[in-house]
């Protein structure tokens, strides 16, 4: 309860490049934290929840704030790209409407202008909205570290409760999202108190569902995919009954905990409701194209 006016840390760095950042990370080790948007870390340092000796502010690193269409039609979201910037991007609106929809459901205007997509991923709370959307888009994360660069899938990146598989000496430089094929429909739905969210990605091939991906947040230790529910839909013809069944299957794949905002049972039930709603909306959108 002793939030201080200013955050507390000892050393502060403003590297200008990824290489410089990686070198600093290697040097400072576990006692360093990377600061980008600041919406999470600054409060954590105020409350004493984290007390890093070294804060490495990457806001001066050139080229990390881009949102662009990269090679092979992939969307590249730089580590400094804010939620607002992603939401505003015309490329995103056109090619990845799920991300546009998701960004506008996160926080409020002031926070979206500061918070970054990558920051939201690097501290993956169980209901991390961006992670839920990126899971169904089968995005990848690009990291740089002392040992070089690597690319991992979104689901591998989320290693466990509030942590990622990234090493202390690594940083995320970019998120890559594959282009959506024709006939895809997506949707993101969210409850605010408690925070439970769901994203769906469906592919409509001549009236049948050829691909189905569903992710849920706030109902397990990390954001999750629900493979059993997805399997029910693949190759099937979607109707109200099947959507309800998928919701029930998804509910069975959750393992929520109770907290201040709601009990586990409520969250479990909401996973069913939200999955059904996301599926219905996503399926309707496949038909609009």
């Amino acid at each position: 309860m002793s939030y201080t006016v200013n955050p507390v840390f000892e050393h502060y760095y403003q590297p200008k490049s990824v290489e410089e950042t990686v070198a600093l990370l290697a040097q400072c080790g576990k006692e360093a934290r990377v600061l980008a948007g600041g919406t999470v870390l600054i409060n954590q340092m105020r409350s004493g929840a984290v007390a890093p000796r070294h804060v490495i502010n990457i806001s001066r690193v050139a080229g990390l704030d881009e949102v662009r269409v990269a090679e092979e039609g992939e969307l590249a979201i730089g580590a400094l790209a804010t939620l607002a910037k992603v939401a505003r991007s015309s490329a995103v609106r056109k090619g990845w409407p799920l991300l546009h929809e998701t960004m506008l459901e996160i926080g409020v205007v002031q926070q979206r202008n500061l918070a970054t997509v990558v920051g939201n991923l690097c501290r993956p709370v169980p209901s991390a909205d961006t992670a839920v959307a990126l899971l169904v888009l089968e995005a990848s994360v690009l990291m740089s570290g002392a040992k070089g660069r690597r690319r991992v899938t979104m689901s591998d990146f989320l290693a466990g409760p509030r942590r990622t598989m990234m090493a202390d000496s690594e940083m995320v430089t970019e998120v890559r999202v594959p282009p959506a094929p024709a006939g895809a429909g997506t949707a993101f739905v969210k409850l605010h108190a408690p925070k439970v969210n769901a994203a769906a990605f469906l592919l409509n091939s001549g009236g049948g569902c050829s691909e189905a991906r569903i992710a849920l947040g706030g109902v397990a230790q990390t954001p999750i995919r629900v493979p059993k529910a997805e399997a029910l839909l693949r190759g099937a013809k979607l109707d109200a009954q099947l959507i309800d069944e998928a919701g029930i299957a998804a509910q069975g794949e959750t393992s929520p905990a109770s907290d201040l905002r709601a009990g586990a049972e409520y969250r479990r039930e909401m996973s069913r409701v939200l999955v059904a709603r996301a599926l219905e909306a996503a399926w309707n959108r496949t038909k609009r194209q």
Binding site: L35, I42, S59, Q111, L114
Partner: peptide, 19 residues
């Protein structure tokens, strides 16, 4: 504590002055 940074509203409590 909202201020405009380059015209965009942000929470100045979540922003470092040096930033």
């Amino acid at each position: 504590c909202t201020v405009l940074l380059d015209g965009e509203p942000v929470n100045s409590c979540l922003t470092l002055a040096v930033d």
